[in-house]
């Protein structure tokens, strides 16, 4: 197994935190000493102290995909795409440049790159899109990449322009038809797999979406890797809160064994 980079714990300065339409935000954090992240790795983020006072409600940090690492000279920074959907993420959304955010990362097992010559099909839904950017950027140096993004509406679609700028094939589906095809990203996947090419599927998004992607890939005898989300308190394998059932029996920890797991290794009926 490849040696993972040693994670850091930082009080990271917010360099940028801007709204990107809908409830989506893009945050960039100064991360001195950041070792870089494999595609699909994540970090635990929590809004830091305010006015010098610690805050314990909400208590737990939130797992967030590392969208990408931006190396600017000797000062690496980490970019996070997220949606302000609950109290924890709303507090993150309220941070301003100069504020500090607590960060632990990079964490977890990332995506394996596709075998040489295979086409990588990346299926992203909602905030799950944020797990796929670095994978698209690296996979395109090895072979063809098709990115299929899904969201409720055009406003909700994260990172669309970044993917487009990579020069990979990009298709979009929105549930209200405000961008791309009306429908689900998994419908785009079904059509793509129907082309009968040598594909490797990668999916990140809501559980029903990933489960459907897993079913479609299995039906076409293609490998499929998913990046799971789950509640977790620590992110590094000690709270044991993020267990999901394995197809082979027992449990996998999303934070340590994942977040990326081979879809066939997951007992989907038991995934919350």
């Amino acid at each position: 197994m490849k040696q993972r980079a040693t994670p850091l714990r930082l009080d990271a300065e917010v360099l940028e935190n801007r709204a990107e339409g809908g409830r989506s935000f893009r945050m960039r954090l100064a991360a001195p000493g950041w070792p870089g992240a494999e595609p699909g790795q994540f970090a635990m983020l929590s809004p830091g102290a305010r006015s010098g006072a610690e805050r314990y409600d909400p208590l737990l940090p939130r797992p967030m995909a590392v969208y990408r690492t931006l190396a600017s000279g000797s000062a690496p920074s980490v970019e996070i795409l997220y949606k302000a959907t609950g109290r924890g993420t709303q507090l993150l959304a309220e941070t301003r440049p100069g504020d500090r955010v607590r960060l632990v990362g990079p964490l977890g097992a990332g995506f394996p790159l596709p075998p040489p010559g295979a086409r990588a099909i990346l299926v992203g839904g909602g905030t799950g899109i944020a797990s796929l950017y670095e994978l698209a950027a690296r996979a395109r140096t090895r072979g063809p990449v098709a990115v299929l993004l899904g969201a409720r509406s055009a406003d909700d679609l994260m990172g669309r322009d970044d993917f487009a700028a990579l020069g990979v094939s990009l298709e979009v589906a929105t549930e209200d038809g405000s961008d791309g095809r009306r429908g689900l990203a998994t419908e785009l996947l079904e059509a793509a797999l129907g082309e009968g090419r040598d594909d490797c599927v990668y999916a990140c998004g809501p559980t029903p979406m990933m489960r459907r992607a897993a079913e479609l890939a299995a039906a076409h005898h293609r490998r499929c890797f998913v990046s799971l989300e789950n509640h977790m308190a620590c992110g590094f394998g000690v709270c044991l809160g993020c267990a999901v059932p394995s197809a082979a029996g027992g449990f996998a920890l999303v934070c340590r064994d994942g977040p990326v797991l081979e879809a066939a290794a997951v007992a989907w009926a038991g995934v919350p």
């Binding site: 314990y56 409600d57 909400p58 208590l59 737990l60 789950n230 509640h231 977790m232 308190a233 709270c239 044991l240 809160g241 993020c242 267990a243 999901v244 059932p245 027992g250 449990f251 038991g270 995934v271 919350p272």
Partner: peptide, 20 residues
């Protein structure tokens, strides 16, 4: 021991619940 099926933890006001 393998522990309980998920969900195993939940956040509460200034605290958390667990049943690992």
């Amino acid at each position: 021991r393998q522990g309980n099926p998920p969900p195993r933890i939940a956040e509460t006001p200034a605290g958390m619940l667990n049943a690992i």
